[in-house]
Design a protein around this nucleic acid. Structure first.
Lengths: 309, 309
DNA sequence: ACGTCCGGTCTGTCCAACACAAATATGAAG
DNA sequence: CTTCATATTTGTGTTGGACAGACCGGACGT
């Protein structure tokens, strides 16, 4: 139990773990192996990390998410890493970023909340819910995450965007629907420590539009509880969402554990930036790499279901 | 990096951390100090925890959230802990629990989701939004938390209730309102590590009904960010929600830090089960011990504001 | 040219044992 | 009953080491 006075500019190891999502063990290991980070010590001999080092760690974390390996990037100076990042990603993303997204981002950074809200609302009117999610909500969520990372948005501005978008999406969830077809009953959730709820919500709305019976449990559900809930609600499919930041080992390990615990006829669908990087998924797990595929997958399930009946 | 074969019924330490939210370090420390948990070892000498021990750990975790200390409860056998759990709060709460709440709880435990949803919906119709929140949503949130604690509801059932209620409440947030009176601009959020969003949502809806301009940042906002956001959005009031489980020291310390960082004319309103137990609140902090007081407080603010103009 | 197998290197997570500040309980004195 | 000082409890930090599995690059066969 060692909370103590903030040291102004330098933060303790637990705070670094929270901010960078790099575990304490790994931070100490890097220090031993690569000589970075090289935190100073406080009056009790505990590590405290200066702001600049934390910034570099964030950069490293982001590059690792893109596939770079620690040994190659940790020894390099900050500016070289920045170049790597802009070389790999900025071009691609800014290129496809529509004017609309850019305008909406500006509304966020200028704190014009009500204008943001009405701009989004009118997009829903124009495009319809389905295209709104695919062409506005999803790209914007990605753009906001990237802008936060590049320091163009404060974390609280990202939070605010999340809230506004959540309010909009929730309006279309959880309403009773009746369809002639057999509706797959889909249980939606995320693993523990996953904080991002937006991806899940977008999926929920899209699935509901296809006539699926969605039961969302929100974020952070222990695996054992997922198993109980599947049994209790007689779900046909479990849909899991993983954000970019979710540790690869955790996600693939967790998915395998879940696959083993569930009966084979229960399908597992996974999606989000956090699964794109996983190389080997277990058998009998569906990767949804594009929200636009949801209708096709639900149709496939219905066909399979009719056939086996 | 040590993913390896699951041993069927026993799980490695990382999985226990994920499932119980007790850190690896703490698990090892308890083993040394109290002799529990006593995991067996796999072929590599790593700890693997049998299912029964994980269940006891979950129980311990719940009791600690209610204020029990590890040293007192860890040595006790499983059944004794179960008794502690059911004995602690049962009397008081069942006494003034209305039939309606009891019925709704039954719908949750029997997994009749769509019926729960329509039952709630019709309550909104009957009572109006304001009375619905005060007389149904708030007491139910408390009842569900208690039922979970007593083991009558699984955690996934509490999650599901939260999602359903959130969907309902979100429908009334974030809509543009225009009032003649000067609307206080209210920033809503919680401190880091606070997971409960429902209280905040209920407050948001009630405040919005009084014509306040609510800007909700969702949960888990660092204090420094709150300060920046107040400046950016020129908020008049910061409203914070604390759930029962929130550590007392963190809340009172955090509130004091926030009070020091904000200009004196910015009001701080705090509420929720987590502040009821705090003895000394700093000067110039409003405690909202009842949701029903919100209209009066907003009226007070308007009067004060008119006067000082 | 392309796929596949195989050694060597890289890397994160686990282990042990200990240290100690802060939180909490306990008991004494006003 | 409150207040203050002292004792106990408890989580998080420390060092240093081990090693399984992921990853890379070269050799080989088709």
């Amino acid at each position: 139990m060692k909370p103590r006075e903030e040291i102004g500019i330098a933060i303790p190891i637990s705070a670094v773990e929270r901010e960078t999502a790099i575990s304490k063990d790994t931070l100490r290991m890097w220090e031993r192996r690569y000589g970075f980070p090289g935190p100073t010590r406080d009056q009790f001999g505990d590590r405290i990390y200066p702001h600049a080092q934390v910034e570099k760690l964030r950069l490293i974390r982001r590059l690792m998410d893109k596939g770079y390996r620690p040994g190659k990037i940790i020894p390099q100076p900050y500016h070289a890493l920045l170049e790597l990042l802009s070389g790999s990603q900025l071009l691609h993303d800014n290129f496809n970023q529509s004017d609309l997204i850019t305008d909406l981002l500006r509304l966020i950074s200028e704190h014009r909340v009500s204008e943001l809200r009405s701009a989004l609302q009118s997009q829903v009117q124009n495009l319809g819910l389905r295209r709104f999610i695919l062409e506005v909500a999803a790209p914007m969520t990605r753009a906001v995450g990237d802008a936060w990372f590049r320091g163009e948005l404060a974390i609280f501005e990202e939070h605010l965007f999340t809230e506004v978008m959540q309010s909009m999406l929730r309006k279309w969830t959880g309403e009773a629907r009746s369809t002639e077809q057999r509706a797959p009953r889909i249980l939606l959730t995320t693993f523990p420590n996953e904080q991002h709820a937006l991806g899940l919500l977008m999926v929920e709305v899209l699935m509901a539009m296809e006539g699926a019976e969605c039961i969302s449990f929100g974020i952070q559900m222990p695996i054992a509880d997922i198993v109980s809930a599947v049994a209790a609600h007689q779900a046909d499919i479990v849909a899991l969402s993983f954000s970019q930041a979710y540790p690869r080992t955790r996600s693939s390990e967790g998915i395998m554990e879940l696959r083993r615990a569930l009966q084979p006829h229960i399908e597992i669908w996974v999606g989000g930036g956090g699964v794109a990087r996983i190389k080997r998924l277990p058998e009998k797990v569906m990767e949804m790499n594009d929200l636009a595929n949801i209708p096709a997958e639900i149709a496939r399930w219905r066909q399979k279901s009719d056939f086996s009946r």
